[in-house]
């Protein structure tokens, strides 16, 4: 086991992990932040998406040790207390989720999309979601939610 420190959602956590521990396992099993989910083992589904230094990444494809000295943000760190992040609110408003399993990764990706494309159109959102699989929604309402959430984030900026 190796002692490492992870900065997650603005707090510093000293933990012991095996070197081979994936970031998503450190988040879920050690820090008990279970919002990031594991939906595949080939880096395709995106359910584990979190932000490292402000960029969306797949936390199943990064070792916990690689994320030392970075700022990690997870779905749990998105809302400010009881106030939802505009992207979270947009997913609820537009019924952008059903079973909810892909949702944390979807929302973290959506926030990243909005950061890079403040007013994304339908085609941009669909292309940007290439790395996030959903089996429930057919993406129809997710796309609407991302567009609306991005607009709401613009309004706040």
């Amino acid at each position: 086991m190796t002692a490492i420190t992870l900065n997650v959602n603005g707090a510093s956590h000293a933990i012991d992990v095996e070197d081979r521990t994936l970031l998503v396992h450190a988040l879920r099993d050690t820090l008990r932040l279970t919002g990031a989910h594991i939906g595949c083992d080939t880096s395709q589904c995106g359910a584990c998406t979190v932000h490292i230094d402000g960029r969306a990444v797949k936390s199943c494809t990064v070792l916990a040790a690689q994320a030392v000295d970075s700022e990690i943000r997870t779905i749990e760190g998105l809302a400010k207390g009881a106030d939802l992040h505009p992207m979270q609110a947009a997913f609820r408003e537009h019924h952008g989720l059903q079973c909810g399993f892909c949702t944390p990764g979807m929302i973290m990706m959506a926030v990243d999309i909005a950061r890079r494309h403040p007013r994304p159109d339908d085609a941009t959102v669909r292309a940007e979601l290439e790395g996030n699989l959903c089996r429930c929604t057919g993406y129809h309402n997710i796309v609407k939610a991302v567009i609306a959430g991005a607009a709401a984030m613009e309004g706040l900026a």
Binding site: R55, I113, E130
Partner: peptide, 9 residues
């Protein structure tokens, strides 16, 4: 290349 998350790393 890949998808947005992969391009970030």
């Amino acid at each position: 290349i890949g998808d947005a998350q992969i391009r970030h790393r």
